[in-house]
Simulated scan of single mutants.
Amino acid sequence: MENDPIAARLGAVYPELPPGERAVVRVLLDDYPFAALGSLRALAERAGVSPPTASRLFDRLGFGGFAAFQAAVRHGARDRSQLLEHVAGPTNLGQAAEDLRAGLDGTLAAVPESLCDKVAALLAEARTVWALGGPLSELAAEYLIRQLASLRPGAHRVPGPAPARARTVLDLGPSDVVVAYDFRRYSPGTARFVRAAHERGARLVLVTDAWGSPLAAQAEVLISLPREASGPIAPLAHEIAVTELLLVAAAALLAPTRRLADLEELTRSLS
């Protein structure tokens, strides 16, 4: 999808669209090109909007209607299929490495020092820090907590089962911080926990993409990352890189030399 001009066009116009048309674009990009190949009514229902709202998107894009948009998507899909027949073979690892490098540069540029410092202060001063993510981004949340727990007490992964999550939310308040990693396709479980925590007054650090996580309005600190990748692999490296920056900034505030020394000694004695 990353090399498809129509998908790129949808992504480029997304920030300028009204909310209803944004919802249609999210459905299209989440399931591209297949979401574009059904009926207009089916697409509108998936996006939670009316057919006229969905239709306005394709007029705005200059296609003159949904049928012309579908034809362009089908034509592009056929061209890509023919191209793949010619280039099928070993993955171009050199290009993948270049794409990863460029993606990391863009990701790090999206997190200026002032933003890192703001998150670091929350991580250092909170009574407790809780982190969670979706099916893949939960790995970044796990990494954050494993490292942060070495720097300070009270750093925890949000548990999975609903009863355990309820007990966690029960004790949250304004002195607690939730760090959520939320990327397309956005996790309903993450949204439910974050909204419940927000109602209790917990403060939210949201690491997300540029497509507009439904949790963005509740975030005290919002970190929006580009999500470039080569091929079908989601770029977890970007999330880990940003997490590293936040941890380094937090460590500078916490000065955990004594704690780390005690941790190392205890680890040796328990091994």
Rank of each mutant, 00 (worst) to 15 (best):
T208Q: 10
A210R: 15
G106R: 14
L122D: 12
S114Y: 00
R165Y: 03
A102T: 10
V111Q: 03
A162R: 15
A124D: 11
L115Q: 14
E21M: 15
E98Q: 11
L104H: 03
P226A: 02
A251D: 08
L61W: 05
R9W: 00
I233S: 13
A180Q: 07
L57M: 10
L254H: 09
E98P: 00
T190D: 07
A216I: 00
G154F: 08
A35F: 11
T128H: 15
L170N: 10
D182R: 04
A210S: 12
G48E: 08
F63Q: 09
G103K: 02
S213R: 05
E16A: 15
F66R: 12
V27G: 08
P18N: 12
P159K: 05
L236M: 11
L43D: 12
A36P: 10
E142G: 06
I223N: 02
D117L: 10
R157F: 02
G103L: 04
P18R: 14
E21K: 13
P51V: 06
S175Y: 01
E21A: 14
F58W: 08
P33Y: 04
P112V: 09
V87D: 04
A237Q: 01
E16Q: 15
A35N: 13
E142I: 00
A102S: 10
T168W: 00
L236W: 01
A249I: 04
I6S: 06
L247F: 03
G106A: 08
L270A: 11
R227F: 06
E45R: 15
A35I: 10
Q70E: 13
S187N: 09
A131N: 07
R152M: 12
P159Y: 04
R9L: 14
Y32N: 05
R78M: 12
R80K: 13
D182P: 06
E113M: 00
L93M: 10
L260V: 08
I145V: 15
G94V: 01
L172W: 01
D105F: 00
R157D: 03
G133T: 09
E85N: 05
A110I: 06
A120R: 10
D31Q: 12
A72P: 03
S269G: 11
G173I: 03
V207P: 02
F193T: 06
D176T: 02
M1E: 12
R9C: 03
A88L: 13
A131P: 06
R127Q: 14
A149V: 03
L204C: 04
R80P: 00
A7P: 07
R56C: 02
R41D: 14
V221W: 01
R46W: 03
Y32I: 06
A216N: 05
N92W: 02
I240K: 01
A141N: 08
A77K: 09
G94N: 05
A97S: 08
A252C: 05
Y181R: 02
G11T: 04
L29F: 10
L151F: 12
A210K: 11
A219C: 02
R26C: 10
A88M: 11
E264W: 06
R184D: 06
L225F: 06
A121L: 13
P235S: 06
